[in-house]
Each structure stands twice: as C-alpha cells, then as structure tokens.
C-alpha cells in the first residue's frame, strides 16, 4: 500500500493543486456575488429584493451536481461552451453565493440598528455607514460560518471530476481503476480531504469563535 501511495503521490499532488485552485476561484466568485446578493436583498428595492430572493431559494434547492450538468452540458447545447473548470467555478461560485449571501445578510442585520441610526444622525451617507460602521462589526460574526462553508465547498469540489476536471477525486478514481486497489487510493484521497476539514472546521473555526468571545 505504501509503495503504491509513493508511486501515485505526484498525481495526487497535482490533483490537490487543482482542487485548491478550484476552491480559491469558486470562493472568490461566491464571496463577491454573495455580497451583492445580500446587498440586493437588503436594498429595499422591490425588484432587486425579489430577484435576489428567488435566485437564492431556487438555486439552493437544486443539487449541485444538477447545476454543474446544467452549466456544462445544457449551456453547451445553447451555444455557450464552457470548459470543465469554468463550468465548475460558475456552478460552485453561483451555488455558494446563495449560502454566503445568507451569512452576510444575517450578520449585517445582526448589527444593532442604533449603530447605523447614530451614524446617519451624525451625517454620514449610507455607503459610509455600511463601510465604516456596519461591515466592520459584522465581520467577526461572519467568520465562523463562512469558514464552515469553505470546508463544505472543498468537499463539493469533488463533484467536478464528473465533467473531467482533474482534481484530487479524479486522480483517486483514475488510480483506483489503474491499480485495482480502489480502497488504498480512495483512502489516500480521504486523508487529504479530512485534513483540510479538520484544519478549517475544527481549529480555524474554534480559534475564530475564541477571538469573537474575547472581543465580547
């Protein structure tokens, strides 16, 4: 088993690289788009609120794999041919934007209203109030659930091997077929995924909660 692991380690490392790249890009899209969704839902403009709410509720209810196939296969039929990687980033970014949007919205709503009222009374405009008063206070509430979703995102990147992206899961699957030792290969991938999970969900989240508690 160890000898096999040694032999396949380079491929696995490549796979981890693709997984991390995909995670980073998807996270970036999800954070930006999620922030926009949260602002749209809080804007008070009926059309924007409705659009963002419908998007959030519908996308959240559809399984990620179905969304991925829609982005990869269905869009291609409509003439929009995305590479596996692009389709994956669009899908994971678009799906996780709904989850991050809700986290942002909850945190912004969680900041005491007196804070923004006081700032408005001092003559700041709404953008400055958001930037200087509300967001800094919302930030530490956002961190633990956001980190938790990040560890879910890493796990969900494993779906993209179905559209031919050569991530960690792809390498594990390929090595399983090549060696006829599927358990050994899947376990190796499992260890990598589990370490990511432990680091993010256990240590980082716990540390963030501690920081939050100390700030009172």
């Amino acid at each position: 088993m160890i000898a096999l692991w040694r032999q396949y380690l380079p491929q696995f490392f490549q796979g981890v690289g693709v997984t991390l790249e995909l995670t980073a890009l998807s996270l970036l899209v999800a954070l930006l788009f999620g922030f926009l969704l949260a602002l749209a839902r809080l804007s008070g403009w009926r059309g924007l609120v409705l659009g963002a709410t419908v998007y959030t509720e519908v996308i959240r209810a559809i399984p990620v794999l179905v969304l991925l196939f829609l982005a990869y296969y269905s869009l291609a039929q409509a003439g929009i041919k995305l590479s596996g990687m692009t389709a994956a980033v669009v899908t994971l970014g678009g799906f996780y934007a709904t989850l991050y949007g809700e986290i942002f919205r909850g945190a912004i709503l969680g900041v005491d209203r007196g804070q923004s009222e006081a700032a408005l009374a001092l003559g700041m405009n709404r953008r400055t109030v958001m930037r200087k008063i509300v967001l800094p206070q919302a930030f530490f509430t956002i961190l633990p659930p956001a980190t938790n979703q990040l560890s879910n995102l890493i796990k969900d990147t494993s779906l993209v091997f179905t559209v031919g992206v050569t991530d960690l899961m792809f390498q594990a699957y390929a090595a399983s077929s090549a060696t006829f030792q599927p358990m050994d290969m899947l376990l190796l991938a499992g260890i990598v995924y589990f370490v990511f999970y432990l680091v993010l969900s256990k240590f980082l989240t716990r540390w963030e909660l501690n920081v939050q508690r100390r700030r009172g």
Partner: peptide, 23 residues
C-alpha cells in the same frame, strides 16, 4: 460523525461501492 462530515460525499460512496471490492 467527524469522518462523515469531513469526507466528500462521493468519496464515501466510492469507498463503499468500489473500495470494498478490494476485500
């Protein structure tokens, strides 16, 4: 619980379906 929550769903399914064939 940690294992179930920490491993990707596909990986778990594949361990059961493909992995166990090794034994």
């Amino acid at each position: 619980v940690e294992l179930i929550r920490g491993l990707p769903a596909i990986l778990q399914l594949f361990i059961i379906f493909f992995g166990l064939t090794q034994f």
